[in-house]
Simulated scan of single mutants.
Amino acid sequence: MIDPKIIKAILFDSGRVLNRPRTGQWFMPPNFFKYVDKNKFETLNIDLIENAFHKGDKYFHDHPLILTEKEELKHFIEFYNIFSKELPELKISADYISEIAKDTVYNDDKFEFFEDVFQVIPRLSQNFKLGVVSDTWPSLERVFKNAGLREYFSTFVMSSTLGVLKPDELMFNTALSQLNIEAEAAIFIDDNIVNVKAAIKLGMQGIVILRGDELKECTDIMCVDDLSELEELLAK
């Protein structure tokens, strides 16, 4: 059980915890079908599409260190170049590849925040230090700023600026160090049970947020459905 009396900080993953892709797909920004023929796209085999996205994503795994939005744009242009080559039927031009990449990096509407974020996060920040620990790119911090949420987080750890992904200990330890707290005084919230278990191994409290999904492992690890349930748990 969580003991609120010893908790000083709450660390959150971002994707599918605080926000989600507006289109339902992280690599399909809001204006994706302005540059990609939707009819042709929808006729393609889903496995081919997923494989194209996977090969583009592998590029990011092979080039994990990205420090600025300018660098992020450069990498996303390469991502969509790879994607386009895997799906030549779409005939995506170089200019359109560049525009899709710009939409991915600079369009804040690529993400939508869950409604409870705007109510619960400000209240939690009154009693706890808050932080973000996310596998993401530099533009995420701008999105939080423009949404009026960045001010509530005392640390904002992004995988691309460290060059590693969760569950690497560096992600968690960087946040703990910046907050100047011990692991035992922190809770980590993620939708990925592997990352939550990694945080628990470091001595943190760990909670899986479901957001409507089911997870059989909730029998041996604490789960909440949303931030309101988390708030209620901490109020006990």
Rank of each mutant, 00 (worst) to 15 (best):
M1P: 04
K5W: 11
I6F: 12
I7P: 03
K8T: 05
A9M: 02
L11T: 05
F12N: 07
S14D: 11
G15R: 03
R16N: 12
V17A: 01
N19I: 05
R20E: 09
R20A: 12
P21I: 14
P21R: 10
R22M: 06
T23P: 07
Q25A: 08
Y35F: 15
V36P: 12
N39A: 05
K40Y: 06
K40Q: 10
T43A: 07
L44V: 09
L44Y: 12
L48G: 10
F53C: 01
K55Q: 15
G56D: 13
K58H: 04
K58P: 02
Y59I: 02
F60V: 12
D62K: 15
H63R: 14
P64G: 10
L65V: 08
L67K: 15
T68V: 15
E78Q: 15
F79A: 14
Y80G: 14
N81C: 07
S84I: 08
S84Y: 15
P88I: 02
E89A: 08
I92K: 15
S93D: 05
I97P: 03
S98E: 15
I100V: 11
I100T: 00
K102D: 04
T104E: 14
N107C: 09
F111R: 13
F113W: 07
F113K: 03
F113D: 06
E115V: 09
Q119D: 13
R123A: 10
R123M: 01
R123D: 10
S125P: 02
F128E: 12
F128K: 10
F128A: 13
L130I: 11
G131T: 09
G131M: 13
V133N: 01
D135T: 00
T136W: 09
P138G: 12
L140E: 09
R142G: 09
N146W: 01
A147T: 13
G148A: 08
Y152V: 00
F153W: 13
T155L: 10
F156N: 09
F156Y: 00
M158W: 04
M158T: 01
S160Q: 06
T161A: 12
G163P: 05
G163A: 04
G163I: 01
K166G: 01
M171W: 04
F172Q: 00
T174R: 14
L179G: 10
N180C: 05
E182A: 14
A186Q: 06
I187N: 00
I189C: 02
I189W: 09
D190Q: 01
N192E: 05
N192A: 01
V194Q: 09
N195Q: 03
V196S: 00
V196Q: 03
A199H: 05
L202Q: 10
L202C: 05
M204K: 02
G206W: 04
I209T: 00
G212A: 03
D213N: 09
D213F: 11
K216R: 13
E217Y: 03
E217H: 08
E217N: 09
E217T: 08
E217D: 11
C218I: 05
D220Y: 13
D220H: 07
D220W: 10
C223S: 07
C223Q: 05
D225C: 12
D225I: 10
E229P: 07
E231F: 06
L233I: 10
